Computed example of a mutant assay.
Amino acid sequence: MKATVDWTGNASFRATSGTGHSVQLDGPPDRGGEDLGPRPMEMLLMGVGGCSSFDVVSILQKSRQDVTACHCELQAERADAVPSVFTSIHLHFVVTGRNLKEKQVERAVSLSADKYCSASIMLAAGGVKISHSHEIRAED
């Protein structure tokens, strides 16, 4: 896997993935940023949510659950001192579908947390406390 990051002025950078997708990153205004994009640590947090959400949906689909939506809310805490690393991250999944089984959703979230989500497992190995919760909503 490869990526590049190019400075575009002030506290702004263009990050490009090896597959050619780009995102504009920016620092906070009090540090020279112009609010042109997410902060790098926000991107890291969104990456954890994306990685785990991908797993949850994939596992549920493979277990023949009729998933129509998956929403992941993330809440992170960071250390007060520099480096201001993540100290904890909580992922809350809101899974919507028809006739979803509680055990299947619980299993999907657990498998992502314990076996498949490389991003959250890597951060947990580095000392970040990762927690998960979920709720199921019936499709109207």
Rank of each mutant, 00 (worst) to 15 (best):
Lys2Asp: 15
Lys2Ile: 12
Ala3Asp: 15
Thr4Asp: 14
Val5Gln: 13
Trp7Phe: 04
Thr8Pro: 06
Asn10Asp: 13
Ser12Ala: 13
Phe13Gly: 08
Arg14Tyr: 04
Thr19Asp: 15
Thr19Ile: 10
Gly20Ala: 15
Gly20Arg: 13
His21Asn: 11
His21Asp: 05
His21Thr: 15
Ser22Phe: 05
Val23Tyr: 12
Gln24Met: 11
Leu25Val: 04
Leu25Ala: 03
Leu25Cys: 05
Pro29His: 12
Asp30Ala: 03
Arg31Phe: 10
Arg31Pro: 05
Glu34Ile: 00
Asp35Ile: 02
Arg39Ala: 04
Met41Tyr: 10
Leu44Glu: 12
Met46Gln: 15
Met46Gly: 15
Gly49Met: 01
Cys51Trp: 01
Phe54Arg: 05
Phe54His: 15
Asp55Leu: 02
Val57Trp: 03
Ile59Asp: 13
Leu60Ala: 09
Leu60His: 02
Gln61Ile: 03
Lys62Glu: 10
Ser63Asp: 13
Val67Trp: 00
Ala69Val: 09
Cys70Asn: 14
Cys70Asp: 10
Leu74Cys: 10
Ala76Gly: 14
Ala76Ser: 15
Ala76Glu: 11
Arg78Asp: 10
Ala79Leu: 02
Ala79Asp: 14
Ala81Lys: 03
Val82Asp: 02
Val82Trp: 05
Phe86Leu: 05
Ile89Tyr: 00
Leu91Met: 10
Phe93Glu: 03
Val94His: 05
Thr96Gly: 07
Thr96Lys: 06
Gly97Ile: 02
Asn99Tyr: 11
Glu102Gln: 14
Lys103Tyr: 06
Val105His: 04
Glu106Lys: 10
Arg107Gln: 04
Val109Gly: 02
Val109Pro: 04
Lys115Glu: 07
Lys115Gly: 11
Tyr116Met: 13
Ala119Met: 11
Ile121Lys: 05
Met122Leu: 11
Leu123Ile: 07
Leu123Tyr: 01
Leu123Val: 03
Ala125Gly: 08
Ala125Glu: 03
Ala125Asp: 05
Val128Cys: 04
Ile130Trp: 04
Ser131Arg: 08
Glu135Asn: 05
Ile136Ser: 01
Arg137Glu: 14
Ala138Gln: 13
Ala138Leu: 07
